[in-house]
Design a protein around this nucleic acid. Sequence first.
DNA 1: CTGAAAGCGCTTACAG
DNA 2: CTGAAAGCGCTTACAG
Lengths: 337, 337
Amino acid sequence: VASINDVARLAGVSPTTVSKVINNYKDVSNKTRLKVQKIIQEINFSPNVMARGLVKGRSWTVGILSTPSFQNPFLYSAMTGMKKALENTGYDLIYLTQENKQPNYNFANHCLGRNVEGVIAFGLEKDSKHLIDLMHSEIPALLIDINLVGKRTAYITSDNKTGVYQAVQHLNNMGHTKIGYLSPKPANYITSIRHDGFKEALDKCSLPYCNDYVLFTDDLSYSRQSGYELMKRLIEMPQLPTAVLCASDTLAIGAYEAMEEHGLKIPEDIAIVGFDDLDLCDLIRPKLTSVRQNIEAIGEKAIETLVYMIEDPSYSPKEIIMPTELVVRNSCGAQAR
Amino acid sequence: VASINDVARLAGVSPTTVSKVINNYKDVSNKTRLKVQKIIQEINFSPNVMARGLVKGRSWTVGILSTPSFQNPFLYSAMTGMKKALENTGYDLIYLTQENKQPNYNFANHCLGRNVEGVIAFGLEKDSKHLIDLMHSEIPALLIDINLVGKRTAYITSDNKTGVYQAVQHLNNMGHTKIGYLSPKPANYITSIRHDGFKEALDKCSLPYCNDYVLFTDDLSYSRQSGYELMKRLIEMPQLPTAVLCASDTLAIGAYEAMEEHGLKIPEDIAIVGFDDLDLCDLIRPKLTSVRQNIEAIGEKAIETLVYMIEDPSYSPKEIIMPTELVVRNSCGAQAR
DNA sequence: CTGAAAGCGCTTACAG
DNA sequence: CTGAAAGCGCTTACAG
């Protein structure tokens, strides 16, 4: 593979000058600049990133840190947005995947070794070792849905409270006054803030918070199975609510299945609202009304912000809140839009 | 950040010796080895990958090349498998995302510049410039669902013909003899091989291939919309088939919608089979019988094979075919399993 | 405007 | 078994 020295020789200049041309330095005459650029084109030269990175202490690389399981439509939508934003930045995306190799594997060190310049983290708990190591390093980090702030750490999340309020308000408008809530137990940021939002929303609508209709599971993964079990528990109550807000669409799917099994109709017997607005909302019947998070926009904004943080060490944002939107379909008795 | 020289100083040895310890060379006494390892632990040293990569001409990095749109559940399932396989290899995964930056962007050059050691490509057409550049480079490439073979290029795909046969055979067993087929026009590898498989399967089952029931769309993206339009065209025929095989689950979803709109029942009026076994098969009603591709396994195998190719330049596989499996649900009149 | 020299943090013959 | 020296392909003061 060609090096800067080859270009220099062919162009009849010094490697220094070639470097200056590549880096758009001003102190090069137009004539030599053109000469050098011509050669670069001809031999299809691209500078060695390793060498460059070594001297500049950089890698033009942004890392992703996510849960080991990894199988998550949320993450993938976010990545689409991330990719879009990255195209304009000159950074590439890197997954550090060696998790299991060493007994005392240290994610932050792995990043440092690779000169990874910033990290997007997602789906971890606050007390995750990797996250803590990362915050103690000087590496800029942008967390998705984890409310941790540090000198070089910020987070981005949807406006969960408003999202929940939009859902409750809609149910109220549809005439529902007894509204249940299904969710993982409020043990982390997202589960807590949505539950708080639910209480506040009821309050704003002057509706009662009814303990019997608010059911939690220990399973924090928002699984379909959890939704199924929660809804089953709810159905076995002596009195039923007329509507149920699920803390995620996947929970709602499980709730649908429990309803189906018990011969209950949506929305006639119980109306359902989900959260996330995944593709599946449109596939199931009745179509699921859901609070839309613009996940792609979150990914895009996350990268933009992270790149700012990388390039301006004094820039230190705290939290970034993205708007939500209620997408009305057929699971609450409203006409589809 | 600490360097090998810091370690050397603290351990009272030369940088050369530290390097030897890091790289598990034999010619180091146990005593010094231990001494050096202790320091490495203490100051939490990890070697600079850039420096290392510069001298060895490597990056311990494997690239992904995919379509610009990128929003694809198939790709993401594959990535889960890829991540799993990577954990044991010492390679990290990198997305090269600068597509739009330069007017004459060259993907292979980008890889060369970063010393990317191998590439997984997915979702491109055979005549894609990036793919061609890649094949002309010396970079090992493993293509998913693109049947191109070269000195350093191989591909992996599902056993599409058998998959289609499994579907047709099942329909035949259920008593269907007039079977339709909905697909993008057979313009690339996957669309062609599935269509060929369909013809052969009918043959094996002694069923007629009926032109009227085989409908193609120009849209190669397997969109829901295409499925909807194809099924609508089919429904407007004077005579209907009793079963339809869709070349993908997403097409089948569209077909469901057309059926719904025309008040036709699945499977009573027309039975439907999909291909891919996406999560959605379980969400829609009736649940969709589909040919399962083990996409995660494909991703895993792809990485394993690529790493072999990287580490043994003389290893030059051609094609890797992965098995399929029919998942019977309720869209053909069979009982759910 | 141009280029010689030093240095980024490693590895690898090679000498001892 | 140990280490001095050269070199990987760049960039950056600095001198001219």
